[in-house]
Amino acid sequence: MTMGQTITVTVNGTVHTAEVEHRTLLVHFLREQLNMTGTHIGCDTSTCGCCTVHLDGDAVLSCSTLAVQCDGREVRTVEGLQAADGSLHPIQQAFHENHGLQCGFCTPGMMMAALGIIEQQPNATDDEIRAALEGNLCRCTGYQNIVASIRAAADQMARS
């Protein structure tokens, strides 16, 4: 028997009210019900970080959070990074300028993790950035340009 309830979640500033199954994962709520497919699923075990979103301002794994747990809360996804005028967020711009992505699959989670890192440690060294990326896997880039991207984004955000 399926059980569910109505939830109201603010995603990237827009309020969404929807019926969800109790077991629905936040990532599936975003992808399947809200059709926001920028957040990806890369593992079953909270290891890869592909599904990283921000919940009330904190970077969390949307694959190990139930949608019902987000009732009344605010979620920010990769779709909410760019400005209303379409200009890229400094993190998005930095990933582009530093070739911080290849296949692009880990990129949304990587950027949302990066946002958390920069907010928590705006002056993080490269080693600290690497340490804080322990929960985000990328199979393409070897991370060198991801670290450079985050470094550049942090510098840009500190300036502006």
Partner: peptide, 19 residues
């Protein structure tokens, strides 16, 4: 040259099969 592929991926508009 910076990649012309990037924008859709950094904005979450990539279209993978599960999308």
């Amino acid at each position: 040259v910076l990649r012309k592929e990037d924008r859709k991926f950094v904005t979450g508009e990539g279209r993978y099969v599960d999308d």
